[in-house]
Structures are given as structure tokens and as C-alpha cells.
Design a protein around this nucleic acid. Structure first.
Lengths: 355, 355
DNA sequence: GCCGGTCCTTGAAACGTTCAAAAGGACTGG
DNA sequence: CCAGTCCTTTTGAACGTTTCAAGGACCGGC
């Protein structure tokens, strides 16, 4: 009772050798039914739990994948986790999560921890954009997959969301709803994600212009994009950006805002509400990311939904392939997923578009 | 290059024995500075990472704690994690997270995984309220701490929030703001948390009545509590409950609602907004949990803030004590934290209280 | 009765660490 | 020159699994 039961104890109780116990655990079909039952009874009686460390030590391959999230408070990663868990379960693996809280040094620490544990593979959204931390981690020869992020220096698998397409569909949606003056409330444009969405937004505007001139249905104000860079990527930043928009003259002010993420959108919504601007009648809003709170906002938010679970599943699958017996045939690749627009009340079409 | 470097390789390269390498790693002070430097150089050159499994196998004590969250999408657990990580870092331990998504069977699976890994200890908010799963896990002799939950069968440490006090302070706050007819929009009363908050709410009402009669400042409508049980604990449930409140006559309808959690409060807010009831002038709202989205709601939500990080820190500390060298002196105990009310716009005092 | 199979079980050697005990060397004081 | 001390390094036995070659028992066919 003072010590944990090991295979030796089980073997003794069942009157067999440890080799047989191991067989019951790993290749049950190879041991005679009677013996197997006896061993299983012994296992249950002793509450035996096989030591993963001893197993790993011997066999050299762990049974767990790790997800190193950039910020667990972002539900995106939770959804990624769910997808990964699903794929992992099918391969009889476990998934543990760890997060870097956006700090490169925490990230390095967590990677060191995972390397020591010899996890089977790591799904990571790096905090250190330089790729240095990951390069260091690469020496451990543990495979990893980048999630929703690219870093310099290839030779690695990546699962990505097509943010350009996301930006384009947001703007196309607003244009389709009759808007011509559209604002893009970006997060810091230093971040690739906000830049990509901007590229997409511009593309959406361009497509509309082409289309409009073709259709030539009366005198059309050409679609225009105005870029507002928020000071951050959270609610407060959204409030701040909205204040700037509200400062514009009626003629200049956009009639619709595409926000770089849902938090920014929420801040915008809050500021507009405080200023008495009604959404969507006087200002339409589209968010990005489709967090749960987008649907739960007072005016439910139209948003771009990211297929996070599919990212997670794909990442896990790539990892399983790369760390499995067929690792030799593995070739690094990118898997790109398309986002999807979820229309809600915040962008209902307006009666009279334009000024 | 084909195989990972082990201590043997390091020793060879540095021209010492493995024992010395082990000493450099574990008791650097005991080895001569020159030798130490040589070994460290070899370690760096080979990119050696010590195998935690081998170490664990030998020494029998892991370096990682685990947090088994009920639902990672709930930011509460992320905050718990942050607190736990802080305490863990001080003890040079790592923390991994795993979640059960509220499912008892997933929970059992995750616990089995953690038992195999021989983690140092587990912080858990059990999905299986019966305590059966945990009792089974207890056989592994891995210490665990209950987080924000009690289950039948003691003999375990717990870190808790005083939900009764939380309920009381919410109601007291509303009464202080001049409200007399208060509604408690509970989640399913099968859950202990919502029951505790109800007890607290009643206590708050009781205290006010005592006070009011004492103060005898004019004719006072006595404070009353009306309980509305929502069909769930999410946004939709809140909307549903709000619809019921809106169906009441003006004389009956509460002037303030204390919601069992922030999601319910958000749903309520959404429904009130849609019905044109203005918050807080016509209806004050208090949430529970103070999630980020409480502050981000159109009308920033007054809410009861839970000291989640402190829970996490306390849980980790208990675990460290219980699994450390002083385990013998460890006595199981409960650590109870007081929540705190964060007043925001949704419960601003009204001019003329009562009907 | 012996042979070749088939099935099941055993025993022992790894895996990469840690740890305690022992060995080795360099001084010191006698 | 020896015993004693101190400091550093080596040695080898664990830790709990898996794996695999080899052994034993039994069976049917000759």
C-alpha cells in the first residue's frame, strides 16, 4: 500500500511473468483468454496504472501531443484544441495544452518543458515571430506544426486560414448590403493577420468597382475603403477607433465598418451605442473571428467564422503522420482553410445606401 | 544525428563520466568549474535535452502539475491557470492543461492519461459530481485539489469561492442603489453554485429588511426577491428568462435583476434591448463571474468578480505541499476566497427607487 | 513414438536517468 | 613517509516498462 503497484506486482498476483502482463496490455490477442482474465483481474485489484515514463523510455515514442497556444483566453485556441483532440483520440493519443500568454520567453520555457517530456509533437502559434525560438526547439527533433501563423524559415507544416479571402468576403458582404463608404478598423498593422485582411478588403472594393461599372445601374458612388488603425486589438482599442470615426463629418464618415477582430468590433459597438448611433441602421458592423460573444452582443454581430476546429484536426493529423511509422514519407506542406461569413443583425441591409 | 543525444554522448564529448554530467545538471556546485564549463559546452553543442521520462522513472517525482478544467472556453479556468502557473514557476514546476468539456467520460479519460503520466498533482473541477471518477483516480495516489467545486467524500483539499457571499453582495448592491423588487435569474437550480447564490441573495434581502425597519426612513416598500430559473446557463437561457420577466405586469416586474452568471446576464441584456427596456434606468442588471465580455457589453455590466487567479495559486500551492517532501505533515483543508463586486454602468443608482 | 507445427509463456537485455558509495588525488601536519 | 582531510570524479545498481529469442506444452499425422 505504501508503494504504487507495478507490472511486477501484477505478475506476481496473477501468477505469470511480467512479459505476459505486458502482452495483456499491448497485444491482448496473443495471450490465452484464461490468463488474460486472471491478469486483468489482478490489474483491477491492485489499481495498477502503467507508467508512461517507463514505457516512453523503452519505446521512445510518447502518446501525447501538445498544443502551445498563444493565448488560451482566446476561444479560438479552445476550438483548435477540440479539433485536435478529436483527431488524437482516433489515433489513441492524448493532447495537453500549454500557453505562452504571448510572451516569447514563456514560449521558450514551455517548449523546453515539452522537449523534456518528449511529447509526440507540438501544435504551436508562435509568440516569437522571428522563428528563433522554434529553430532552437527544432534541435530536439520533435515535429511541430504552425497554427494560423507563418514564420521565416520553412521546413515545417502549417495550417492556415485564408485571411485575405476573409477580408474580401467581409467587404463584399457590406457592399452587397448597399454600402459604399466602408471603414476597415484594423488592429496594429504590424501583425500579418490585420495586413492580410486589409489586402482582402481592398480586393473586395476593387471587385465591386469592376462590377458596378459593368452593371451601370444608375449613378453609383464608387466603393471606397478607409483604413483606421486601432491602437490595439481589444475592446478598448475598438472604442478608441470608433471615437475617431465619430469625429468625421457626415459626408466622410463610412456607413459600415469591418473590424479586424470581434473584440475591436465590440468596442466599436459600445462606443456607437454610447454616441446614439444605431446599428445597423446608421452604421453596419462586421467582426472577425466569430467568438461566442459576437452572437451574444446586444446587436448580434455579423462576423467571419474561422474553421478553428478543422485547423486543429488538420494540425494533429499532420503531426501524427510526421511522428508515426510513415514519417519517412512525410513531406511538409501547408493546409489552408477558407473562413466563412456568418450574417447577423449588425449588418442587415439598409434601405437607402450611400449618403 | 540520427538519434537524440543522451547523457552518455555528452559525457563522451566532454571527456567525463555520465555521473559527472548528472551532477552538472542537478548539483552544479559540486563539480569543479572547469569541468562544469566543459560539460555545459558539450550539452550546448549536442543540443542535449534531458529525458524527463528517464528522470521520472528513476526519481519517482514528476515536475508537472495538471489542471483539468471543466470547460476551457470559460475564461475562469484560464485565469486559474495563470495563478497556478505563477506558483508552479516558483517551485520550478510546469503546468499542463487538459479539459473534460463537461463530460464525465472525457474526464475519466483525461484522468487516466494524467495518472499514466504520473503528474505531480492535479487541480480539478470535476464534471462527475458523484465523486466516483475521482475516487477511482484517488487509487493512483496522485494528489488532487478540487477547484470551485465540492463533491461527496472528503479527504481532499479544496479551493472555493464563497458564492453565498457573492449572492449577498450582489443583492445588497442593488438594494443600496434603491431597488426593492429584485429578480434572481438563476441557472438550473440543480447546480450548487446557483443554489448558493440564491441563499446569498435571500440573505441580502433579509439584511436589508432588518436595516430598513431600523432606519425607518419614511414608508419603505420592503425588499422582495423573485426567483426566475433559466433553462440553462448560457446566453440563450438568459434571453428566455428575460422574456418571462418582460411578461410581468409593471407592478410585479422587478426593477433589477441579479443574474446567475455573465452569460445569462448578457442574454437578458440582449432581450431587454430588443424590447426597448433601457438599462439601467428601467432595469438594473448585475452579472456573476466578471468575464471579459461583461466589461465589453454595450452597457458595461456590473458583475461579481471571482478571484480565479488566487484560486489557481492556492490550488497549486496546496498540491506542491502535498506532493513535496513535507507531504507527511500535510493536512487536507479548504481555502475559501471572497468574491468582489465590480460596479459598472448596468447598475447605476436610479433617481426614484421603488414603484 | 517421433516429427513438425501451433500456441502460449518466460527470461533477460535494453532504454536514459539518478544516487549513494567508493575511489582517486592533492594537501597538510606530524 | 604516513595518516587524515578535503575535493572531485567514477562506478554500478536501480527505476518500470517493452521486446524478442527461446522454451514448453500440446496436437495431429505419419
Amino acid at each position: 500500500m505504501t508503494k504504487n503497484a507495478g507490472m511486477r506486482d501484477v505478475a506476481e498476483l496473477a501468477g505469470v511473468s511480467v512479459g505476459t502482463v505486458s502482452n495483456v496490455l499491448n497485444r491482448p490477442d496473443v495471450v490465452a483468454p484464461g490468463t488474460r482474465a486472471r491478469v486483468q483481474a489482478a490489474i483491477a485489484e491492485l489499481g495498477f496504472v502503467r507508467s508512461e515514463s517507463a514505457r516512453l523510455l523503452r519505446v521512445g515514442r510518447s502518446q501525447v501531443l501538445a498544443l502551445l497556444a498563444l493565448d488560451l483566453a482566446n476561444p479560438f485556441y479552445v476550438e483548435v484544441l477540440r479539433g485536435a483532440e478529436q483527431a488524437a483520440r482516433e489515433a489513441e493519443l492524448g493532447v495537453v495544452v500549454v500557453d505562452s500568454a504571448g510572451s516569447a520567453v514563456a514560449e521558450a520555457g514551455q517548449l523546453a518543458l515539452l522537449a523534456q517530456q518528449r511529447v509526440r509533437g507540438v501544435m504551436v502559434t508562435p509568440a516569437d515571430g522571428s522563428g528563433g525560438t522554434l529553430a532552437e526547439f527544432g534541435r530536439s527533433r520533435i515535429p511541430y506544426v504552425l497554427v494560423d501563423r507563418e514564420v521565416p524559415g520553412g521546413g515545417v507544416c502549417r495550417v492556415l486560414v485564408d485571411d485575405v479571402a476573409g477580408g474580401e468576403m467581409a467587404v463584399a458582404h457590406l457592399i452587397g448590403a448597399g454600402h459604399r463608404r466602408i471603414g476597415y478598423v484594423a488592429g496594429p498593422l504590424g501583425a500579418a493577420e490585420f495586413r492580410d485582411r486589409l489586402v482582402g478588403a481592398r480586393r473586395g472594393i476593387g471587385a465591386a468597382d469592376g462590377c458596378a461599372s459593368l452593371a451601370a445601374e444608375g449613378v453609383h458612388e464608387p466603393a471606397r475603403l478607409m483604413v483606421i488603425e486601432a491602437p490595439g486589438a481589444d475592446i478598448a482599442a475598438g472604442r478608441d477607433a470608433a471615437a475617431r470615426v465619430l469625429g468625421l463629418s457626415a459626408a466622410e464618415r463610412p456607413t459600415a465598418l469591418f473590424c479586424g477582430n470581434d473584440l475591436i468590433a465590440l468596442g466599436v459597438l459600445q462606443a456607437l451605442f454610447a454616441a446614439g448611433v444605431v446599428v445597423p441602421a446608421e452604421m453596419a458592423i462586421v467582426g472577425y473571428g466569430d467568438m461566442e460573444l459576437a452572437a451574444g452582443a446586444v446587436v448580434p454581430l455579423t462576423s467571419i467564422r474561422l474553421p478553428a476546429a478543422r485547423l486543429g484536426r488538420a494540425a494533429a493529423e499532420l503531426l501524427i503522420e510526421e511522428s508515426g511509422p510513415l514519417a519517412a514519407q512525410h513531406v511538409h506542406r501547408d493546409v489552408v482553410f477558407q473562413p466563412e461569413l456568418v450574417a447577423r443583425a449588425s449588418s442587415l441591409p439598409v434601405r437607402s445606401p450611400g449618403s
